[in-house]
């Protein structure tokens, strides 16, 4: 992976183009789209949680299609096996040895549709590869492609025969977004645009895989001041001591928060992170990892987390922003 960085102006231009490309498919969901792009540039994994038919898969595919990279899609079903994801070693009769046949996880962008429908064992196979960036089959380790991003979708309504992701697994996703219903205008526009062909078909890649790598290393080079780091830590720590939360944010959450903030800063054309980036990302980065004390039932669903969103917003509003006060330093 290249350590090359690019000019922030160029970064911004390219990201605008990707945004425009995706918006040809997803109308009026700029916030969700930007968060999705943030995840990709921050080398995180994205969890899209919402009711069926609002374009979760469409967003994932549009994002994948705008980047010229390998994309695999896995439809999760209850009978899906771990090896259906990671791949299997097959005995080659001619060469008289086992040869590894890579599974769909070997791609730059892996779309996991309805991840909660698979058995926990299968889910775990994907999630482990997400965290480690590699797959172990029959004692051999195979590195995954770089960059590597999993975009998983989850349907919170259908509870029958599903296995909601446990907290530990949810923690591996950097950002969780909900699509939400489109507004009137967007829905009307969608009707006319989908009349003839799917707009997804017309999408062409905007950036190459090497450009994506450059953009990712650009994000890595974004400056985070001590003050902002401290602010992120304080915010995450506040969730751990909050009375209304049973489970607070993990240290991994803090890491994800800062990394996502870097990507957000880069998307805004800024070469440093400001507290506002942290604030804006607190809900998408933190909420899916937290469990509130008040409502146990349906933990983890997007609807349950309404109260968690409120709690996170309250915490963000209460944590003092590092004061810009150089003269007393």
């Amino acid at each position: 992976m290249s350590d090359q960085t690019m000019n922030l102006e160029e970064f911004r231009k390219l990201s605008r183009e990707i945004l425009g490309s995706i918006e040809k498919v997803i109308d009026g969901k700029r916030e969700a789209v930007e968060l999705a792009m943030t995840t990709v540039f921050a080398e995180g994994h994205l969890l899209i949680e919402d009711v069926p038919g609002v374009g979760k898969t469409m967003l994932a595919r549009a994002l994948a299609k705008s980047i010229d990279c390998t994309v695999n899609r896995i439809q999760f079903t209850p009978d899906l096996l771990p090896s259906d994801i990671t791949g299997v070693s097959v005995f080659n009769q001619e060469e008289r040895e086992f040869r590894f046949k890579p599974g769909p996880v070997f791609a730059n962008i892996v779309i996991g549709d309805e991840i909660n429908r698979a058995s926990p064992k299968t889910q775990a196979a994907l999630l482990e590869s997400m965290e480690e960036g590699q797959v172990s089959v029959d004692g051999r380790t195979y590195p995954l492609a770089k960059p590597f991003t999993v975009v998983a979708t989850q349907n919170p309504i259908e509870m029958e025969g599903t296995y909601p992701l446990p907290e530990a697994q949810r923690d591996r996703f950097m950002i969780r977004i909900s699509m939400g219903y489109p507004d009137d205008a967007a829905e009307l526009a969608m009707l006319s645009s989908r009349e003839l062909t799917s707009p997804l078909e017309r999408l062409v890649p905007i950036i190459s895989i090497s450009q994506l790598a450059t953009m990712i290393s650009t994000v890595r080079a974004i400056h985070v001041s001590k003050a902002v780091e401290k602010y992120a830590v304080t915010t995450c720590q506040a969730t751990r001591s909050d009375r209304e939360l049973r489970l607070g944010a993990s240290p991994r959450a803090t890491l994800h928060l800062v990394r996502a903030a870097k990507a957000k800063a880069a998307l805004a054309g800024r070469d440093f992170v400001i507290p506002d980036d942290i604030n804006a990302l607190a809900v998408p980065v933190l909420c899916h990892r937290l469990i509130s004390t008040t409502r146990r039932a349906g933990a983890g669903s997007a609807f349950q987390s309404e109260s968690v969103v409120e709690i996170v917003n309250r915490i963000v509003a209460a944590v003092p922003v590092p004061l810009v006060e150089r003269e007393s330093a």
């Binding site: 400056h223 001041s225 003050a227 902002v228 070469d271 440093f272 400001i274 507290p275 810009v324 150089r326």
Partner: peptide
């Protein structure tokens, strides 16, 4: 300017 001075590199 403030953001640059306060949080920038």
């Amino acid at each position: 300017q403030v953001e640059l001075a306060g949080y920038g590199p």
